[in-house]
Computed example of a mutant assay.
Amino acid sequence: MRLGAWTETVSRKVADIRFSELQIRTQNLLHVLTVTAAVGLTGNAASASDAERGASVYKKCRACHELGEGAKNGVGPHLDGLFGRTAGTLEGFKYSSALKKKGEEGLVWDETSLDAYLEKPRGFVPGTRMSFLGLKKAEDRADLITYLKQSTEAAPSDEANAPATDARPEIGAAAMALEGDIAYGEYLATECVTCHQTSGRADGIPSIVGWPKDAFIRALFEYKVNLRTNQVMQNMTVNMGNEEIAALAAYYGSLEPQ
């Protein structure tokens, strides 16, 4: 074989080898990209699924905590902007001294601290007014935290503590319009202290100390009209008038949690 022909043959073989290597590398790269995309899609689907399950778990929280557009403080503080917030510092809400102390000690709400708190609130913050017993299942806590993180990243609305703007008349609106007599409320509260501590502690019975006026009145009217089903509270409120309910709201709203 002539040298020129031999050189040409070798060159073609080298080119073929290089092309084959390039094909293999390209196939490997496409495989990696395909796997990565699949993992990403699976992760996103799992995240969406976690958030959906978390929304269901949140139903246990929403009686006390609002979140989203127009969220306001009620029985519990609203949850907008929760992550990264120092515990016990949301303006306009009366926290227990136990939770404020935790904040002063450096407790900030994040995935880790919320998981510990949600597992057993009164174990993590002894003396908290939060009467919720906790979520035992780690999966439920993780799903709830995923949902809260997705739902509360937006900054709190400027109207976070504004009155509700629902077109329907607010239940108890007439009582809410009254300026309750604190002294009269203290007198009426002698019927309440059998169960509810004026210290604000929640040892088996929810604390009602420091509740916002509208939330307090709304709750009593919901018992009064049987929207809430505790028989003792229904019996206590059935004959209460607007002035009595407004007075109790004023008295308990004037107390500072200990």
Rank of each mutant, 00 (worst) to 15 (best):
G253W: 00
F124N: 06
L118Q: 02
K102G: 03
L41E: 10
N235D: 11
G204I: 11
R218F: 03
P121D: 06
I145D: 00
N44W: 12
P206C: 08
D16K: 08
G84V: 14
G70P: 00
E104H: 11
A215W: 03
K13C: 12
A215S: 13
L255F: 06
L29Q: 14
S47R: 11
G200P: 02
L248K: 00
A138H: 11
R2N: 14
K100L: 06
L99T: 06
K120D: 05
T190G: 09
V193Y: 10
V10I: 14
L133T: 15
A63G: 13
G103I: 08
A5L: 12
E104N: 12
R228Y: 04
C195P: 05
S254M: 07
Q231E: 13
E119T: 07
T152P: 04
T190L: 06
V32H: 10
L22V: 12
L82A: 04
E21A: 13
V10W: 10
L3F: 07
A63N: 09
K94R: 11
T112R: 13
V209G: 00
A167E: 14
A174W: 00
Y95L: 02
K213P: 00
A247R: 01
A15W: 06
E159A: 13
D181C: 04
E111C: 01
N230D: 13
E179W: 03
P257L: 13
E105T: 13
S96E: 01
E186S: 12
K13Y: 12
S207I: 04
A249H: 02
I208V: 15
N73L: 01
G185A: 08
V232Q: 09
F216D: 00
C192Q: 04
L29F: 13
R62D: 12
Q234K: 14
D214M: 04
G40L: 07
Q258A: 13
F19N: 11
K224E: 05
T194F: 10
A116P: 00
D140C: 05
L107V: 15
S47D: 09
R168F: 05
Q234C: 05
A246Q: 01
M240D: 02
R18L: 09
E69K: 07
V209W: 00
P169W: 04
R12M: 11
T89K: 04
V225T: 15
C192L: 07
N235T: 08
A37G: 12
Y252Q: 01
Q231V: 15
R2F: 07
A38V: 14
K137R: 14
Q231D: 09
A155P: 09
G68V: 04
V209P: 00
A142P: 03
A5W: 08
W6F: 11
S47M: 06
S113P: 05
L99H: 01
K100M: 13
R122P: 01
K136E: 15
A142H: 07
D158F: 12
T194G: 15
E256D: 12
S47Q: 10
Q27E: 14
A167W: 10
D214Y: 02
